[in-house]
Design a protein around this nucleic acid. Structure first.
Lengths: 192, 192
DNA sequence: AATGCAAGCAAGTAGCCACTTGCTTGCTAA
DNA sequence: TTAGCAAGCAAGTGGCTACTTGCTTGCATT
């Protein structure tokens, strides 16, 4: 089904740009090069179409941190870059959905969002490192996780809006964040 | 002029809740307990009204870090809490305005926003500490500033949406962030 | 060749939108 | 007492909205 996917993609795009109210069926149909009526025949209503489109557009295959950590710093770097990239690519959708969270809390499943799942995974990974004494025992890993995820999240959704605050490309910024993060955690490399 | 301020406040509220398109003149008038026509007589058009309302609602008196730092940790704590509080109280406006940044970039002056100004001030403060050798010389203060502001910002605009990620009250969370931040900077207290 | 289905087109419905006009009410200052 | 002004009220305008109906076109299968 090529047409159905084209509609869903167009709907997600238009929603990301203009929000629920701005995403008129006419605009979506134009973007998908499809007759407006086709939308209703396929999805019944604008609400159902947008729900499905957003669900599709926000689903992703998470980047997984390894269970056995050989090189924490390098592993964290790959993971952080992948997660930053995911969020950055979806920044329009994330910003719009967050702005409409009060009015339409159900349209974007925030509880199982990229950021939350990634945060849980990072925390589990850091806890493993802590039991291996590669991270100082007195560190509060929940706060550390929240801090690092918050840094990545803020970067991903703000860097195109505030270029003066984010002059470096993501690869360099993420490296800098990791430098500071490793210092905060007193992160050691495994001695194996 | 009590009436004018009442209209501006109502407009900012309705905008924060429903965005530009959702902030209809009828809803604003109802919220302000004012006839719809009064809006047009005072502000000419919906666009001009919302512009002025958002400008008013986003203006604030910044909390200033001292030029002479006696107790950096305590000073940073007060400053971070004040800034977090400012952003948290405006979270609805910030989220809505960010979501509409693509469509209406001029409605919210992001360049001179709370977060950006605060970031510049924090950086200047940290640079002073670095020249006094209270912060390790090899630290990249721009990255550190971006990281800390990103943490505060993400906390302020996400904590009501993701309660599972932010179980502690702001006072405790900010303390934890500062613990980690001080470790990352290798922050020393002045010896005097 | 006949059938059925997916999609397009034209037209229309009821409702909300920003904004306007004409007129009335009530307060305040000369 | 009068003049002027700020605000309310009633009604309406043209435009956009989601969504519907009736009909036609074109392609694929039988």
């Amino acid at each position: 089904m090529e047409l159905r996917d084209r509609i869903l993609e167009a709907a997600a795009q238009v929603y990301s740009e203009t929000g629920f109210r701005g995403a008129t069926t006419r605009r979506i149909a134009e973007r998908a090069h499809v007759n407006e009526i086709t939308l209703f025949r396929h999805f019944g209503s604008k609400t159902r179409l947008l729900h499905e489109a957003i669900q599709c557009a926000s689903s992703s295959t998470p980047c997984i941190l390894p269970a056995q950590s050989a090189n924490p710093r390098a592993e964290l770097r790959i993971w952080a870059l992948a997660n930053h990239r995911e969020m950055f690519e979806r920044r329009f959708l994330i910003r719009t959905a967050m702005g409409e969270m009060e009015e339409r809390p159900d349209i974007f499943p925030m509880d199982r969002s990229q950021a939350v799942c990634a945060g849980l995974e990072l925390k589990a990974y850091l806890e493993r490192l802590q039991t291996e004494h590669l991270i100082a025992a007195e560190i509060d890993l929940r706060a550390a996780t929240t801090m690092f995820m918050g840094t990545l999240f803020a970067d991903a959704i703000s860097r195109d809006i505030l270029p003066s605050m984010y002059p470096d490309p993501p690869e360099i910024s993420v490296d800098q964040y990791l430098d500071l993060f490793a210092r905060a955690l007193a992160l050691k490399e495994p001695s194996s």
